[in-house]
C-alpha cells in the first residue's frame, strides 16, 4: 500500500495506525507492533521537523510484505541530510535547541531489523526499513 499525508504533527499518529493496521496481516505480537510504530514515528517526525522544518510538505509511506517480513519506506521531498554517517550516530542532532535527543535513527535501528537512509540535499530523504514478524512462524 501507498499512503500520502501532509507533514502535520497530527498525521504522525495517523501514520502509525495505518502501518499498524497493515502489519496486522502478519499477526504480530503487541510488542512487535509497538516496535514498528515507534520506528515509523521517528521517521515521520524527522520528515516533519528536519525535512520540512515544520512547513507543509508531502510524506509518502509505502508498506509491503515479503514472506514474513514487513518492509516500510518513509519518504519526504524536503531539505535532505548533509552527512548521513553523522546523522546515524547516536546523540547527533542538528537541532539541539528543540530538545531533540539525536536518538531517532538509533531507535529505528534498534526496533527494526534493517534501516537504510537515502538522501540528497534539496531533494529529500527516503528511509527503508524492514522487520521480520517472527510470531507469524508458529
Amino acid at each position: 500500500m501507498r499512503l500520502e499525508i501532509l507533514s502535520k504533527s497530527q498525521n504522525e499518529s495517523f501514520a502509525r495506525v495505518v502501518v499498524a493496521a497493515f502489519v496486522a496481516q502478519l499477526d504480530p505480537t503487541l510488542e512487535e507492533l509497538a516496535d514498528i510504530k515507534t520506528a515509523v514515528s521517528e521517521a515521520v517526525t524527522n520528515s516533519i521537523i528536519h525535512g520540512y522544518l515544520e512547513e507543509l510538505g508531502k510524506i509518502v509511506i509505502e508498506c509491503g510484505i515479503m514472506g514474513e517480513t514487513l518492509e516500510v519506506t518513509i519518504e519526504d521531498f524536503g531539505k535532505g541530510i548533509e552527512n548521513i554517517e553523522q546523522a546515524r550516530e547516536p546523540l547527533f542532532t542538528s537541532k539541539p535547541e528543540l530538545e531533540r535527543s539525536g536518538m531517532g535513527f538509533t531507535v529505528m535501528e534498534t526496533f527494526m531489523d534493517y534501516v537504510e537512509i537515502d538522501s540528497q540535499i534539496g531533494r529529500g530523504t527516503k528511509i527503508r526499513m524492514s522487520k521480520e514478524i517472527k510470531s507469524s512462524r508458529d
Binding site: 495506525v17 499498524a20 496486522a24 499477526d27 504480530p28 503487541l30 507492533l33
Partner: peptide, 21 residues
C-alpha cells in the same frame, strides 16, 4: 499475537489497532 487477543476478547483486530493508538 494480535489475533489471539482479538479471539479472546471477541473484539476485531481493527478496533484493537485503533484502541492501542
Amino acid at each position: 499475537t494480535l489475533s489471539e487477543i482479538s479471539a479472546s476478547l471477541d473484539i476485531s483486530q481493527e478496533d484493537i489497532v485503533i484502541a492501542l493508538e
